[in-house]
Simulated assay, not measured.
Amino acid sequence: MSITTERNPDTAVLPERIRRFPFPFAANQYRYSANVEPAHKNVTTEAGSWGTGLIDIDENYHEEIAQREQILTRDPSRMKVLPHMRSAAWDTLATLLPAMAADYPDLMSFHREGNHCRWHNGLQNLDVEFTVGEDDSLPGGPLRFLGTQIQDDIVLLDVRDNTMWLDAGLVTFAADWSFNFDVGMNFLEIHGPVPRVKEENIVSRAEKFLLALQPGEQFRRTNWTMTVGQRLDTSTETYPEWGPDRATIATDPAMPDKLHLRVEVQHLIRLPHSGVLLFLIRSYLLPLSDIAKVPAWREKLGHVLAELPDDMAEYKGIIRYRKAASEWLLAG
């Protein structure tokens, strides 16, 4: 959703993490919707703007890439590529690396002659040559390599039988779901647990929209939840590490600093050669104490949390602390 408003002059002194944050609410109420818009569209918020590029690189780049490496070393099941998705993995790499080079020409470059490619990433002092289609020309193959270059999680949906199937991906920063569990499921099965979307026909409409995407088309949407702590990996597999915090954060005096609004910017791309649907999921965290520095954000999030129906709050895992968070925001 696009937010167009005049900015408060004081926002010029806000740190970059706030000015570039993709705040997802245009009103004081939230309900599920497809909320799809064209990619690369600049979105102006009350604090700044976001959205002009496909791959966003920020101050957390090196830290998040390092986190991903640690997670994959501990749990290799966070990446899977079913055999028939091999070409789609290469299609993904050959689509995203040139896009990064175009968005960051001072830092990155991509050159291709036939299937031979050369990639330079100045942020990593990295120069790599590889051959498209030859898995052993890149460490771990194309998807594994891509995970060392971008902060986004990657989901690949194959199209067959008039629906989409999650048959490949690299997901280390899941928000209360399990990539490994969902591999092999179709689009409707994956979204089955989400309340209200079936009754309101949201998933079926989203499915029709995605199936109609043409090769090369790029769209995006936002999604949100909340997370205790500066933690991107809130996957089902690691629930014992972060789940108990949900029960105690409401009474924690440090709640404004510990409780984060988590926003996902999800890019939806029909890959040009394989026809597979690529979902890029880029996750951002901002604590309530930072949200409160933008008065319009503080008010909107406070009202959204107060008004959100219980079934939606339960599904998002915020029902035990959303009242405390709302009251703190609206008391500001």
Rank of each mutant, 00 (worst) to 15 (best):
S2P: 03
I3M: 05
I3C: 00
I3A: 01
E6Y: 12
N8V: 03
P9S: 10
L14G: 14
L14K: 14
E16K: 15
P22D: 03
F23R: 08
F23V: 02
A27T: 14
Q29A: 13
R31F: 03
Y32A: 08
N35P: 04
E37S: 07
E37Y: 07
E37F: 07
E59R: 00
Y61V: 08
Q70H: 12
I71S: 02
L72H: 12
P76M: 13
S77Q: 12
K80I: 10
L82V: 09
R86N: 10
A88P: 10
T92H: 00
T92I: 01
L93G: 05
A94C: 15
T95R: 10
L97W: 07
P105K: 11
H111A: 09
H111S: 09
N115I: 01
N115G: 04
N115R: 11
C117A: 14
D127Q: 11
V132A: 12
D136V: 11
L138F: 00
L138W: 00
P139Y: 14
P139M: 15
R144K: 13
R144N: 14
L146G: 11
D161S: 06
W165V: 00
F173W: 05
A174E: 04
D176Y: 13
W177E: 00
S178K: 13
S178V: 06
P195F: 02
S204G: 05
R205K: 12
Q214K: 15
G216L: 00
E217M: 10
Q218C: 14
T222L: 09
W224L: 02
Q230E: 11
T236M: 06
P240Q: 06
D245R: 12
A250H: 02
A254H: 03
P256Y: 11
P256R: 13
K258W: 04
L261D: 06
V263Y: 01
L268P: 04
P272M: 14
H273G: 01
L278C: 00
L288I: 12
I291D: 09
A296S: 15
G302F: 07
H303D: 15
L305W: 04
P309G: 07
P309D: 15
M312V: 05
A313C: 01
G317F: 08
